[in-house]
Write a protein that binds this DNA or RNA. Structure first.
Length: 588
RNA sequence: GGUCCCGUGGUGUAGCGGCCUAACAUGCGGCCCUGUCAAGGCCGAGAUCGCGGGUUCGAAUCCCGUCGGGACCGCCA
């Protein structure tokens, strides 16, 4: 070993000990005589004091030492002289009086500073030199937090009799869902493996195999455009249980998170325990989204009934064409300028609205774009229904129901950020249940599975397969937190007759079903237990716990938004020989 | 595929028609300095302002295009 101790562990109790440390030069302070070097490793930073009584040779090469050089230092731990302690450092009571210093490796001048948290370089520069970026304390802390989260999950589930099983990365393409990443086969010309979008089928087959309680920290791959909370490859805690109902799965995951968060992120507080449960329909009507941020109010309020006889053309036509009028109340925003309201209108339009009507409640009565159309009885009715006070701004959307919800749901989040309505230390978990089973795909004129095709429809709704598929509810559930979808799961179909009905409704032909899913249907005929599970996202959870704005900050080597690995420069072209072996020709 | 925002020494910012021969901080090089901890002081090197075109007497600054990046919509069972 190059060292006897870590830089972070030394305290006053070590005083008098001779130690050898190895690490990076975090900062240097050269006073001409005495030189201070802050030496850093993963565990912390400690001050190394180089006194001028060392050999001339040592002093000469210490004078050359720069930031991020790798040193091995042998010296004695001393309590610092009175008044010289640094309370900002964990090791601030002590210092190492250097006896010998070896340069294990010098470093070129870095493209950016590792010490200090401010003035981060452009993100692509950070990604290009990710191994340097990860030296920063914040990134190192994120990696450690992530480790703790995953470790807690493993330990918790192990205690609950779960076993961790690895499933293949090279698997089969599926027609449903996200675009697959394909891997060409060398041995079978023209055939491809697919990287798993999730181990969905495999974990269900493990239930058929009697594995009973399975989990995996599973890498998943989806060839879709990235976002702050979406990467081409990401990690889920994939789990599946046999002989359970919906609430058994929810209870397990809720217990896992409720136990974990105080242990790994003590600053974080749960908004409520137990977590609230909303139906999909309820939550969309109230918050305009199926992944609401429950840390603040500003709920959507339906005021259609107040404006049934409105003089306002926009309201009239919405009602006449079967739509709704809903609103949100932005507290204290009545004094918004024309410019600010215009910006909100633009946002509303981007979300699909035709426009945005506003009422500002002021000391001189109503103002805003809808003010002159609002009758006095309507004014009173609205104010009392939405609880608007003087100084508030009411924003209305009038359109078909889905559009209204989406627009106001989007504006609600904009106000959250504008007005700082959400406490960053709160974790507002909730369950969303009773999702629709199918959604009509207008473009392709077919039914799509809202969750995935293995989701169990609610048994009461089975007759609706023939009458009204849109009304079929499924036994699917989501876990949401602070406006993010944190997990998704369902009770699965374990009967091949129901599975067949679903495939047929999705428009899959018999031969297609056989080719794509024959192995699943066959498996279900050999005694499949009732089962269900879910898959909480690891990246998003760690992101929230680490107070990071995107999941790239909690992934060691992420892709950028355009799906590129900036450090290794992937994807990249390959040798013609490789293509030839894979029977692939590039079309120009 | 679409909308919006950003692109100035190694890094982070300022400058937003002429005072820019581009400023500040930090890093880098040199000198001074024995108790600092974002050490300090002095000196110095380092940028044709992403790229291309246009407007103008004059462009880092305005316009168009393009490339790169980010946020969002679509997409993400």
């Amino acid at each position: 070993m190059y060292k006897t101790h870590t830089c972070g562990e030394l305290r006053a109790t070590h005083a008098g000990k001779q130690v050898t440390l190895a690490g990076w030069v975090h900062r240097r302070r050269d006073h001409g005589g005495v030189i201070f070097l802050d030496l850093r490793d993963r565990y912390g930073i400690i001050q190394v004091t180089v006194n001028p009584d060392l050999s001339k040779e040592t002093l000469e090469h210490v004078a050359n030492v720069r930031m991020e050089w790798v040193l091995q230092v042998t010296g004695t731990v001393h309590k610092r002289p009175a008044g010289m302690e640094n309370p900002k450092m964990q090791t601030g009571e002590v210092e190492i009086i250097a006896e010998s210093i070896d340069v294990l490796n010098p470093a070129k001048t870095l493209p950016f500073m590792v010490s200090g948290e401010n003035d981060l370089p452009d993100e692509n520069t950070r990604l290009k030199y990710r191994y340097l970026d990860l030296r920063r304390e914040r990134m190192s802390r994120n990696m450690i937090l992530r480790h703790k989260v995953v470790k807690f999950m493993r330990d918790f589930l192990d205690k609950q009799n779960f076993i961790e099983i690895e499933t293949p990365i090279l698997f089969k393409a599926t027609p449903e869902g996200a675009r697959d990443y394909l891997v060409p086969s060398r041995i079978y010309p023209g055939q491809f493996y697919a990287l798993p979008q999730s181990p969905q089928q495999l974990k269900q087959l493990l239930m058929v195999a009697g594995m009973d309680r399975y989990f995996q920290i599973a890498r998943c791959f989806r060839d879709e455009d990235s976002r702050g909370d979406r990467q081409p490859e990401f990690t889920q805690l994939d789990l599946e249980m046999s002989f359970v109902h919906r609430d058994d799965v929810l209870a397990l995951v809720e217990a896992l998170y409720t136990d974990m968060i105080p242990r790994v992120a003590p600053r974080k507080k749960l908004l409520s325990s137990p977590w609230p449960k909303f139906s999909y329909k309820e939550v969309v009507e109230k918050y305009g989204t199926d992944k609401p941020d429950l840390r603040f109010g500003m709920e959507l309020i339906d005021v259609s009934d107040i404006f049934t006889k409105s003089d306002f053309r926009v309201f009239q036509s919405a009602i006449e064409s079967g739509g709704v009028i809903k609103c949100i109340v932005a507290p204290g925003c009545a004094d918004y300028s024309r410019k600010e309201v215009d910006a909100l209108t633009e946002s509303a339009k981007a979300l699909g609205a035709k426009g945005l009507a506003t009422l500002a409640v002021t000391g001189e009565g109503l103002k805003g774009t809808a003010a002159k159309f609002v009758k006095s009885e309507e004014e009173e009715a609205v104010k009392s229904k939405v609880g608007a006070k003087e100084g508030d701004l009411i924003l209305f959307a009038a359109d078909e129901r889905a559009v209204v919800n989406k627009v106001l749901g989007g504006l609600r989040v904009i106000f959250r950020d504008k007005l700082d309505l959400a406490d960053p230390d709160l974790m507002a978990f909730a369950w969303i249940v009773d999702f629709p089973m199918f959604a009509w795909n207008e473009e392709e004129k077919k039914w799509d599975a809202e969750h995935h095709p293995f989701t169990m429809p609610q048994l009461d709704d089975l007759p609706k397969f023939e009458t009204n598929p849109a009304e079929i509810l499924s036994d699917a559930y989501d876990m949401v937190c602070n406006g993010y979808e944190m997990a998704s799961g369902s009770i699965r179909i374990h009967r091949s007759d129901i599975q067949l009905k679903v495939f047929q409704l999705l428009g899959l032909r018999g031969d297609e079903i056989e080719q794509k899913f024959g192995h699943m249907l066959e498996a279900f005929e050999y005694g499949a237990p009732p089962h269900g599970g879910m898959a909480p996202g690891v990246d998003r959870l760690v992101m929230l716990l680490a107070d990071e704005p995107n999941i790239r900050e909690v992934i060691a080597f992420p892709k950028n938004q355009t799906g590129r690995d900036v450090m290794a420069d992937a994807p990249s072209e390959v040798e013609p020989k490789q293509l030839k072996e894979l029977h692939i020709q590039i079309k120009e």
